[in-house]
Nucleic acid binder design. Structure first.
Length: 471
RNA sequence: GCUCCCUUCGUCUAGUGGUCUAGGACGCUGGCCUCUCACGCCGGUAACAGGGGUUCGAACCCCCUAGGGAGUACCA
């Protein structure tokens, strides 16, 4: 059998991490088995669907690298086909027209609730001849009894009693088809073999299976993946911060990190944490997906992101960093080779945004030295080492990391001071903070001119302090 | 309310009747390394929701309870 999976979002918002993971699982399943991955846009809700959302979803998929083999198919372009199927169902008596008022339906619901029963449509119009030219909806005639058994690839066997199901609307009074009909027609027409989707669809599954059968079609296999919860264990929602996939890009995450994080959310392969795309494809089995919902944990995502920052191709990361530097108002071409910046900083940053921020000093003079760092390191005792370093650096011609390293060591030796007594004041003077890459690399990246200028500023500050103390 | 689903460290998970005094990862934490911050390395912290069965033996099988979640639309 040819494996065909699909991702079928409704374009009513951006691509969020839950949808992205579902898409990833579907994509992996297809890739794993040499199958085809189809993208279908479920836009039958004319009120809520927007082209902006379609674009946002496409953009998110592209960024993650989840390329589809067929599509995107739009359901709004298939209305004729749905009508054809509904007509067929009507003709065979497997569906019927209904003109029950919304008031009547509402009353039915309330009565059922009072009787502590599940609200269901009572089949009032099943045997009535509703005038096709008058306003009406079309309902699917659900079997009255029997069991519908779903053999879910993740949950196992789930049984539903047809008595719990009612005759659902498959065509609205405005003539548009509804979800449960369109999925079945599409999954059938597109020969989808495996439906991998969120578990909020479990309850729809028996209805859809019944429609498949009414159509004389074999239903696909189903796999319902549990949802993703927010950091606090509550349901993930727009109010829970960055849930849009594209926002993760803005916040400096790498797509490979997000993908790796997402694949491990609910799925595992022994104790392995790091998965390249190739490994995911090779090892992913839908049966290994957990049944329980899982909470999103940004801390672990950050760890993975740093892992990929550290492991990735520096040139590739440099390109991405360039964008984030730009956002800080920095012209990346106004400093050293970006690859050198990446290599110096990638063990110190968890995101590209952080990397850009801690690299700011390489390009721009700072407003003021961090007070705590200044207080601790720019004291009178630091004046002599700083002056010596200033003189040595001013005379320095070879500005390579190695040469600078020897220079700092030499000054420390001459003054009979430990490295820290020389490097720390120097660092604070040049960086404006007490943290940076190795002092040699730091000096190298900043460049001679800026280094000297900043050391002069720091020396000035020390003299001011000495004067103030002397009074 | 009704139907369906879920339940191992704070979080992600391993585990499919004995090898579990429950393993790994993130986080937190002690130490080492060290010019700072990181990285790295070594160590620590912390869980089988509760109660009944079945069995020589249960995290694993069954039942109940509790707690979460989904659906119950002319949304998808």
């Amino acid at each position: 059998m040819t494996i065909r999976t699909r991702f079928a979002p409704s374009p009513t918002g951006y691509l969020h991490v839950g949808g992205a993971r579902t898409a990833l699982f579907s994509w992996l399943y297809a890739r794993r088995h040499g199958g085809t991955f189809v993208l279908r846009i479920e836009d039958t809700d004319l009120e809520r669907s927007t082209t902006e959302s379609v674009n946002a979803i496409l953009e998110g998929m592209t960024w993650l690298g989840l390329e589809y083999d067929e599509g995107p198919f739009y359901q709004t372009r298939r209305f004729d086909r749905y009508d054809e199927v509904i007509g067929e169902l009507l003709e065979k008596g497997l569906a019927y027209r209904c003109d029950c008022s919304r008031e009547r339906i509402e009353r039915l619901r309330e009565e059922a609730m009072q009787r502590r029963e599940k609200p269901r449509y009572d089949g009032h119009c099943r045997h009535r001849q509703v005038d096709p030219d008058k306003p009406h909806v079309v309902r699917f005639r659900n079997p009255d009894e029997g069991l519908v058994v779903v053999d879910d690839m993740i949950r196992g066997r789930i049984a539903f009693d047809n008595r719990e199901l009612d005759d659902l609307i498959i065509r609205r009074s405005d003539g548009s088809p509804t979800y449960n009909l369109t999925v079945v027609v599409d999954d059938s027409d597109m020969a989808i073999s495996h439906v991998i989707r969120g578990d909020d669809h479990i309850n729809n599954t028996p209805r859809q299976i019944n429609i498949f059968r009414a159509l004389g079609k074999e239903p696909p296999r189903f796999a319902h993946v549990p949802m993703i919860l927010g950091e606090d264990g509550a349901r993930l929602s727009k109010r829970h911060g960055a849930v849009s996939v594209m926002q993760y890009r803005e916040e400096g995450f790498l797509p490979e990190a997000l993908l790796n994080y997402l694949v491990r959310l609910g799925w595992s392969h022994g104790d392995q944490e790091i998965f390249s795309l190739e490994e995911m494809i090779q090892l992913f089995e839908i049966e290994d997906v957990n049944k329980a919902p899982s909470s999103f944990n940004t801390e672990k995502l950050l760890w993975l992101n740093q892992h990929y920052l550290k492991q990735g191709d520096p040139l590739h990361i440099a390109h991405l960093l360039s964008y984030h530097l730009g956002r800080l108002g920095i012209d990346p071409t106004s400093g050293p080779d970006l690859v050198e910046v990446v290599e110096a900083q990638r063990e110190r940053a968890r995101t590209l945004v952080e990397m850009a921020e801690i690299s700011r000093f390489i390009y721009q003079d700072f407003e003021q030295i961090e007070p705590a760092a200044a207080k601790k390191h720019l004291r009178p005792a630091a004046r002599q080492p700083l002056e010596r370093m200033r003189a040595a650096l001013a005379a320095q011609e070879d500005w390579s990391v190695e040469a600078l390293h020897r220079l700092v060591e030499q000054v420390a030796e001459e003054l009979e001071l430990k490295m820290g007594k020389v490097a720390q004041p120097l660092r604070v003077a040049v960086v404006g903070r007490a943290a940076s890459p190795g002092i040699d690399v730091t000096l190298h990246l900043v460049g001679q001119e800026k280094c000297l200028r900043r050391i002069d500023r720091a020396l000035e500050l020390i003299r001011e302090r000495e004067a103030a103390a002397g009074q």
